[in-house]
């Protein structure tokens, strides 16, 4: 499996560390029961999965990778901060 890092180009997956589901959001601190869901529950889909990879042996960026868990085919790779910022901005606007 190779991951197309937006900064370093196509690199072997062994340069990256896996963190898991990228759709998990830090819950609202005033709703502690949501922490159980955020920490423990996962959709664990067979198919497209958005996930976090850290390019530790390269540019040290956090990346959001969309990958098929049945075939390991990778569809998109983007820098995670951008995506988070977007979501946070949306949240702030809402």
């Amino acid at each position: 499996m190779r991951i197309q890092c937006p900064f370093c180009g196509e690199r072997d997956s062994s340069e990256f560390t896996y963190l898991g589901d990228a759709t998990v959001r830090r819950p609202d601190p005033s709703a502690p029961e949501q922490y159980f869901e955020a920490v423990y529950l996962r959709d664990n889909p067979a198919g497209r999965h958005e996930e976090l990879w850290y390019h530790g042996f390269g540019c040290r960026s956090w990346l959001r990778v969309t990958r098929d868990t049945r075939t390991h085919e990778i569809f998109t790779v983007e820098m995670y901060n951008d995506a988070t910022t977007e979501t946070n901005q949306e949240a702030a606007r809402a």
Partner: peptide, 18 residues
């Protein structure tokens, strides 16, 4: 390893990753 696929059909999320 296929547990989540089935429980997803029943609308149940689990503390499991495959």
């Amino acid at each position: 390893g296929n547990t989540s696929r089935l429980t997803n059909l029943a609308g149940l999320r689990l503390p499991i990753e495959s």
